[in-house]
Simulated scan of single mutants.
Amino acid sequence: MTFAGASIENDVVVITGGGTGIGAAIADRFAAEGARVALLGRRLGPLEDVARGTGGLPIVADAGDAESVKAAVDSIIATYGRVDTLVCNAGGGGFATVGNTDDADWTASMHANLHTAFTASRAFLPSLALSRGRIVMIASLSGLFAGPAMAGYTTAKHAVIGLTKSLARDYGSSGIRVNAICPGWVRTPLADEEMDELVEHLELGNRDEAYNLVTTDLPLRRVAEPSDVAAAVRFLGSNESAYITGATLVVDGGAHIVDVPTLAFEKARA
């Protein structure tokens, strides 16, 4: 059943960090329903790979650089004539304690995770106002909590949620809705690298054992696939969520509802 207003056919969806992982899955999901996708990223090869499967427009751009994003906006408008949804997915870096983070690493983390979201949102606001469009921020569970040795990433993702609320407050009267998604562990190339480190440090058998270990206390007991996050983005990036703005949707298998101090009791009863 298709509900009135829920179709995304012919919508123009812009995805930063669109060449791999979650970004690629988002492109696949929207394209499968007839949307036209524009893929922004810093490496042409991965963008072209996703574009071949989605019919999308690959654009090499640093989403945190104003001139680079302006050129991308011009290219997208020249090609498609409009923008309906912006997905701010670019991010990464900032995995160290404060004491082990130098100025360059801090700046790089803020650029990758926060400046990209700010700069892309600002650049696309005029086009989104014309279409009464949507912005979906890919934040993180680290935007709500703090993991070990993740100072830059955690700080930036908390700020992305603040940016989401500020944009929603200021531009709702222009018809623009802005929401954030906070994924937990997602099976991506970046997460695979982290699992491989865990395998080495804990002398586990393989990567799947590492994923099982980091999700053992989740209610759903599994790692997310990129398609799980893409489904949430499709909801917030369409008129199915027409009266939702400024919200944070957690996609983490239930990690955020677990009362950590009671885990010992669960294990005792097992």
Rank of each mutant, 00 (worst) to 15 (best):
S227R: 13
E193D: 13
D196F: 06
V178W: 09
E193N: 10
A210M: 07
D228T: 10
A230S: 05
D192T: 11
Y211I: 00
A159D: 10
R169H: 14
E209P: 08
E193P: 00
R222N: 05
S166L: 15
Y171M: 03
V199R: 12
R207L: 08
A210D: 01
V229M: 11
A191Q: 11
V223D: 08
G237Q: 01
A159N: 05
H201V: 07
K157R: 13
A231M: 00
G175Q: 13
L236D: 05
E200V: 13
T215V: 02
V233K: 09
E194C: 02
P226D: 06
R221F: 02
N179P: 00
V229R: 00
G184K: 03
V229Q: 09
P219V: 04
E194H: 14
D192S: 13
A168T: 11
A231P: 09
E209R: 07
A231V: 03
N179H: 04
V160D: 03
H158V: 06
R207D: 01
P189W: 12
S166Y: 11
S227K: 12
L213I: 02
V223G: 02
A232Q: 11
G184S: 01
A168K: 14
E203S: 13
G172L: 03
Y171W: 14
Y171I: 00
S173D: 11
T154A: 10
G205D: 14
Y211G: 07
L220F: 12
N179F: 04
I161T: 08
R169L: 13
M195P: 00
G162R: 15
R222H: 14
R221Y: 05
G184E: 03
D208Y: 07
H158I: 14
H158K: 14
R234K: 09
V214Y: 06
G184W: 00
P183D: 10
K165T: 04
E197F: 10
G172T: 02
V160I: 09
A156S: 13
A159S: 12
G184F: 01
A230E: 15
L218S: 06
D217L: 07
S173T: 15
L218G: 02
E203N: 15
N212V: 02
A210S: 05
N206D: 15
H201P: 01
F235D: 05
L218F: 15
R169W: 12
T188V: 07
D228F: 06
L218D: 03
L202V: 00
G237L: 05
